[in-house]
Design a protein around this nucleic acid. Structure first.
Lengths: 190, 190, 190, 190
DNA sequence: AATGAATGAGTCTTCATTCAT
DNA sequence: AATGAATGAAGACTCATTCAT
């Protein structure tokens, strides 16, 4: 008896990520995923109910991974602005340095594959960030504006910037990153 | 003859817009477009070389339309900030009030259908806005940051906000719009 | 414009019949049907929603055809027994001489493809025969037994006999047919 | 060892019977059989060479079982008609009360799984009944008609009746059973 | 003997595009 | 120009069977 391989699920996820990055979500074929993962097509269906299911898992997987990256070096004993800046740079760095994941999440987001519940679930991952914004407001450091509005403002700007400036020959320079943060901070500061 | 052609072309474009909004880009079938436009499938191929061609035309069509909306009430004899605010509100209003088009442009943007040249062409439409930013910098009213960075910052934030807040029951209130503009202006002001 | 061919539906039905007879229902492939009918696979789906739909139409088609055969030379001005015998011989002859159809109807009957409504509909085709049985009872020529019971008795016996004796080298001889009818008549006569 | 094997073989056979009755032969999957029998798929292939082999065994198993039922209370010292009636009632009762088996045998019969030799072998099981018919003819109690014809007549009618009237809410009443036997006896009596 | 994960050939169905009318 | 029936390549998914453990 071979036991259902924990590893194999990861191999499939990884293979799919690479394919979407290289060829795009639109041309993604189950048979290609199998080939890329060096397994049989049928095996895919042991680990995932169908294509949609695989893509939803994929989305959740990298959404969580990106959230983990986001929280790095955050230390609530430090001043708000320090953490805010760290968070912002974490996000930007991750988005710029992992264009694979970013592309994936973006392509999936406007695809018909994603189930609403999965999108909802990923939304919950933002909860700690919302709390942090609340803390910033309490300290009267940032504007008293609806969290969702601020979040949309922050994510939207950072996402597009990362997308536009992730290609190697036009990656954001350290100064540009500082400038962009300056814009962001001016936008939200009280 | 010309007018007849253009009329039908418009009908097809309009029909496609509605279908993408209702059913999404992924499920879009040529036969459905034909049905929605009350013509035969074959006729589609008289006006457009193929599906890709149709979608590229569609993209360009609404990109231009949105740009026209954008320029409304802009008057270069007025002060920079007045125009900047007007432009910003034009964009936001259009994006919120025409979720159909916004959805369309967004869905198309991360689809494999769009030709690079078309994306490039739409980029040119932003030229006047770039000039305006230059003027703002000359007057030392806005930060001296790379235009593309500013544009990405502005478009990104406004797009995501519009998407998140375009459903009828959570449309942005006038105050929220003002608040958002405040963030934007603080971000770019010198 | 080519108009949807009335004929083609018949061609498909005919091709399917031959295939089921030659190869059996179990191995029936849509691609083979298309080949046999000298059309493209896709064309099948213009005339029939899917495989199940095609097979249901097939069933109904030949059920009706067999019913038409059944009614031949029936003349209600003739005495009951004459008609009864004629009917019985019509059925037996059809079943023996068209083993293709018989095989088909039988195979379909115990397949998962047939929709209950279709089976119901074919049941209605027996109505005239039920009336005839009623007439026979009124004339006190046949036993006063529930029609459904008589029908099951008649169909069951005749079906199995036809199946067992339809191969060329053991077809029922005229005497055997008379003998079988004698059994049948003795069974139902009052 | 032997007994252990036979036990498991029986469990598999039993599980398959239930599945075919509940879900039909067409949807029958080896994996489902394994689940129903609470064993692993691989184990099926220890007891049966393949699916076809399993189904042939199944067919033979229940064919034999039904024959055993058939012979109950038959006593050749009793008069012919008594035995004939007993036999007939045995068959009818078994068919009505064990719709599971009846469904199974019927579904298998028009499936591509059954090997001709197996069908032949089951035919041999009818030998005692043929002898009985011969005895009836010798005593000039029944018509002098080819045994196969009589058998087909009897089985066909009884099978269809049992199928039509085996559902609980329309099971044949004792009177109806008597009536049906009356038809049968009239059919065969000399 | 028992297990069940892995395999991959096989099949239905879809849909962009063509072309005869 | 307009039509829509016809085409057939392409792809998701199934399931009997195998085989390493």
């Amino acid at each position: 008896m071979k036991s259902k391989d924990e590893l194999k699920e990861g191999i499939i996820i990884r293979a799919t990520l690479q394919l979407i990055f290289r060829e795009g979500l639109a041309g993604l074929k189950m048979s290609d995923i199998a080939k890329q993962a060096s397994i049989a097509v049928g095996t895919l269906y042991i680990y995932f109910k169908n294509k949609e299911d695989l893509l939803n898992h994929l989305f959740l997987h990298f959404k969580r991974e990106s959230m983990t990256q986001l929280a790095q070096k955050i230390d609530f004993s430090l001043p708000f602005k320090v953490n805010f800046k760290q968070l912002w740079f974490n996000y930007l760095t991750y988005a710029i340095d992992n264009p694979e994941q970013a592309t994936l999440l973006e392509q999936l987001h406007c695809s018909p594959y994603l189930r609403p519940e999965v999108i909802e679930e990923t939304d919950k991952l933002l909860q700690p960030i919302r709390e942090m914004l609340n803390e910033g407001k309490r300290q009267m450091l940032i504007k008293n504006i609806d969290n969702e509005l601020i979040l949309a403002f922050l994510s939207g700007s950072i996402n597009l910037i990362a997308r536009r400036f992730s290609e190697n020959d036009r990656k954001l320079s350290p100064e540009q990153r500082e400038q962009t943060f300056e814009m962001t901070w001016d936008a939200v500061r009280a």
